[in-house]
């Protein structure tokens, strides 16, 4: 399989990475080189094989459903580029 220019732009939108018009061709070439490389997986007979979900045979542990942490909003937002009253600030999203 290979991707065309429109698909490259669509992937960019899904990934939330701006793809400028003059970058499309480069991305397309690189993505298609990698897709060409992984194509050899089609040779493998995977009939009846379970997809791996965990490399160690273990159940994910669960913890008690109780509050164990928190109460420090100032630390949560300490690294944000823009905050006000311990809220993250973003451009207006609702008109």
């Amino acid at each position: 399989m290979s991707v065309d220019a429109a698909t490259v732009k669509r992937i960019g939108r899904l990934a939330r990475i701006r793809v400028e018009e003059n970058e499309v061709e480069k991305y397309q070439g690189e993505i298609n080189a990698i897709l060409g490389f992984v194509e050899q997986l089609d040779e493998v007979d995977v009939t009846g094989v379970e997809p791996m979900t965990s490399v160690t045979p273990m159940q994910l542990r669960r913890r008690d459903d109780v509050v164990t942490d928190g109460g420090y909003p100032e630390k949560v937002v300490a690294n944000a580029p823009l905050t006000e009253d311990n809220f993250f600030m973003v451009p207006k999203v609702i008109e």
Binding site: A15, V38, E50
Partner: peptide, 29 residues
């Protein structure tokens, strides 16, 4: 950016089984 684009593509609707699930099966092997 290149890897995020690839990752987004192989997880996108219609390609998930062909790429991601197949790769995880190969991983089992």
């Amino acid at each position: 950016r290149r890897r995020l684009m690839i990752g987004t593509y192989v997880l996108s609707a219609g390609y998930y089984d062909a790429y991601y699930v197949r790769a995880q099966k190969v991983r089992t092997l």
